[in-house]
Simulated scan of single mutants.
Amino acid sequence: MKIEPQHVVSLTYDLYVDQEDGSEALVESATQEQPLTFLFGAGQMLPKFEENLSTLSTNDTYDFRLTPEEAYGEHDEEAVANLPLEMFQGADLPEIGSILPLQDNNGNHFQGQVVSVAEDSVIVDLNHPMAGQPLHFKGTIINVRPATAEELSHGHAHGPDGHHHH
């Protein structure tokens, strides 16, 4: 079956990023046993990722690259936040390199990586961990099926075969 909007796609992927020495490093994978399953066209995935898959069908393999602009954007030096230490009262201070779940004034959730801890604030890098990096995806389309009415109303897939909320 061909991939189309309002279809649920299950696929394997290996995601590679470029290393400074010119080689590629595998940073994420989805396997046959644990595939990535998503509702195509629902805006959950990178638009260019979906665009590259849009001509494929079950059992097709793919291999494509996304530029940083097509993926998570360029690394933005300005995208840092100073969080006052008061925010962490009663909690341990985060370690450098740890990822903090944050929320902005509009209620949007995002993650920041702690880059330093100063006397009165914690400095967090708000860039996506893969910002500024071209992404190289390789994988196979395992399954394509029409989404159920429930999946469409919820806007996301319920597992490879669809599942019911208990």
Rank of each mutant, 00 (worst) to 15 (best):
M1Q: 14
I3M: 01
H7P: 08
S10H: 02
S10Q: 01
L15N: 04
D18E: 15
E24Q: 11
E28N: 11
E28S: 12
S29T: 06
A30W: 01
A30S: 02
T31M: 02
Q32I: 15
Q32E: 15
E33Q: 11
L36K: 11
F40N: 07
G41L: 01
G43N: 04
G43V: 04
Q44H: 13
Q44C: 09
L46Q: 00
P47L: 00
E51M: 13
N59V: 12
R65E: 13
P68H: 02
A71P: 06
A81D: 12
N82S: 15
L85T: 12
D92G: 12
S98F: 01
S98H: 03
P101G: 01
Q103E: 08
D104Q: 07
D104T: 09
N106E: 15
H109C: 10
F110E: 05
Q111P: 09
Q111R: 14
V114C: 02
V115A: 10
A118Q: 15
A118S: 15
I123A: 04
N127V: 02
Q133Y: 12
P134N: 06
P134L: 04
H136F: 14
F137P: 06
K138T: 10
G139F: 08
N143C: 08
N143R: 10
E150H: 11
E151S: 04
E151D: 07
L152K: 03
H158S: 01
G159N: 00
H165L: 04
H166A: 07
